[in-house]
């Protein structure tokens, strides 16, 4: 996993080269920081074909200080791109919800771009299991 030094640890840890390339395509050589962007996904997917995903970003969402976009990637999907959400101050709050496909157990990664050009990154692991059994 060469050339991932642009990503802070642990975000760079064990990321697929295709995912790193997809992220670099969007943010260039800039380095994101950890924090502010939050991913909410179930720890274990009930159905890998439709996994609920919520992204939120801490932001006042004013004209002077808001989130411009959040890019979401699935590290071990056939192609890592999942979605880009473009935000505006008219939203009042920085959040978006959708449902995604995950072929296997993997990390989902979110990169947020702020109006001042700062970048934030976070990741969340989702387990995709064969299931069965229970108490």
């Amino acid at each position: 996993l060469v050339g991932l030094s642009l990503l802070p640890k642990p975000a760079a840890a064990q990321m697929e080269p295709a995912t790193a390339a997809a992220i670099r395509k969007i943010i260039g050589e800039r380095t994101p920081e950890e924090g502010r962007v939050q991913l909410r996904l179930p720890p274990i997917a009930e159905n890998g074909n439709t996994v609920p995903l919520t992204v939120t970003v801490e932001s006042p969402m004013t004209a002077a200080d808001h989130v411009k976009a959040v890019h979401v990637f699935a590290d071990k999907n056939p192609t890592p791109d999942v979605a880009t959400f473009r935000f505006s101050p008219a939203m009042g709050r920085a959040q978006a919800d959708t449902r995604i496909r995950l072929g296997q157990t993997q990390d989902v990664i979110a990169v947020a771009e702020m109006s001042d050009g700062k970048l934030y990154i976070s990741r969340a692991e989702v387990k995709v299991t064969i299931g069965g059994c229970g108490g």
Binding site: I44, E46, N47, T129, G131, C133, G134
Partner: peptide, 11 residues
């Protein structure tokens, strides 16, 4: 309710 019902039992 049991959070993993659709995984542990038939979805």
């Amino acid at each position: 309710a049991f959070p993993y019902t659709p995984i542990a039992n038939p979805r």
